[in-house]
């Protein structure tokens, strides 16, 4: 069992942390260097956590659990206009990021209004490539309830946020509804506003736990971090991708930020120690996001084995 954690500390000697992760059989998901500070998102075997904690303490770094690490969450707003950004959508996206998730903001083309709101097929497909999504609505009950059709065709768990208290029964397509987070036009910094952001993170955490439980019923042929490691090693071009996170992990695969047409064969030919090709144990298709490469690992019931 791998535990997701976030290490924050000085750049000095942080490579010791990375070496230890490798020795323990864990994975480095993301590395961000900001001047003299480094932030590492890691997956560490649960049993070895005390060893990692001891090294982090020695280096005067901070090691905290990042429950959303290794997942991608979409923050969906009716549009990307000043009514929703930078507050409150950016606050939510940033808060999810601090808890380890890779958050993407999606502004719908025609998501505004009570009666005229709509979502198109492309937008639905794009949101469906994530592990969970947060739909952010406003302060009026009627508007929030009537926007249900926007997320009816979304397959991943949908956390809806809005201002007023609304019984969950009125939103049959939502996984959970988080109230008190409607339209605001100032930065969330008061204690109660931060508590509301915590509630969103908790709701997203529960949504991801459900998705994890579903996956456990029919385990994946291999784990997404292992695919990430193998691709990093065997497709070196991924290291020169300009994206801050060249390989974004999902619960059931990953998105490799290289052009599909040029690199899908190289990704498909990635070979594991057991001799299997990635193309045999996963579906590789173009992502709706900039036509990157989307890898979806097949479950055990399809391949008949787990590596």
């Amino acid at each position: 069992m791998l535990d997701p954690v976030m290490y924050t500390g000085g750049v000095y000697k942080h490579d010791l942390i990375m070496e230890l992760v490798e020795d323990l059989g864990g994975y480095l998901l993301q590395k961000n260097v900001t001047q003299s500070e480094v932030i590492l998102l890691l997956l560490i075997p649960s049993d070895d956590m005390p060893i990692m904690a001891a090294l982090a303490k020695e280096l005067r770094g901070e090691l905290v659990r990042a429950p959303l690490a290794g997942t991608e969450v979409a923050v969906v707003t009716p549009t990307l206009a000043i009514h929703h950004l930078p507050h409150s959508a950016c606050d939510v996206a940033e808060y999810l990021r601090r808890h380890g998730a890779k958050s993407n903001m999606v502004g719908l083309a025609r998501g505004v209004g009570r009666e005229i709101a709509q979502i198109n097929e492309y937008e639905t497909d794009l949101v469906n490539e994530h592990d969970a999504c947060v739909f952010m609505f406003g302060n009026f009950v009627q508007c929030i309830v009537e926007k249900g059709p926007l997320y009816r065709n979304i397959n991943v768990p949908v956390v809806v946020t809005g201002g007023p208290e609304i019984p969950k029964e009125k939103m049959p397509y939502a996984f959970e509804y988080v109230s008190s987070v409607g339209r605001i036009s100032h930065r969330s910094k008061k204690a109660n506003e931060l508590a509301n952001l915590d509630r969103i993170v908790a709701a997203v955490g529960r949504a991801l736990d459900r998705a994890r439980r579903d996956i456990e019923k029919d385990p994946l042929t291999t784990s997404p971090p292992r695919v990430m490691d193998a691709v990093r090693e065997q497709v070196p071009e991924v290291q020169s991708s300009f994206s801050p996170l060249p390989i974004a992990l999902n619960l059931n695969g990953c998105r490799i930020k290289l052009p599909y047409d040029e690199f899908h064969q190289a990704v498909s030919d990635v070979t594991f120690d057991e001799g299997m090709r990635l193309g045999d144990i996963a579906t590789i298709r173009p992502s709706r996001m900039k036509r990157y490469i989307l890898v979806r690992i097949k479950p055990e019931s399809e391949t008949g084995f787990v590596i």
Binding site: V141, G163, P164, S185
Partner: peptide
């Protein structure tokens, strides 16, 4: 829309 009333004051 009592909540909306209160929030729109703030906005």
């Amino acid at each position: 829309e009592e909540y909306g009333e209160k929030k729109y004051r703030e906005i």
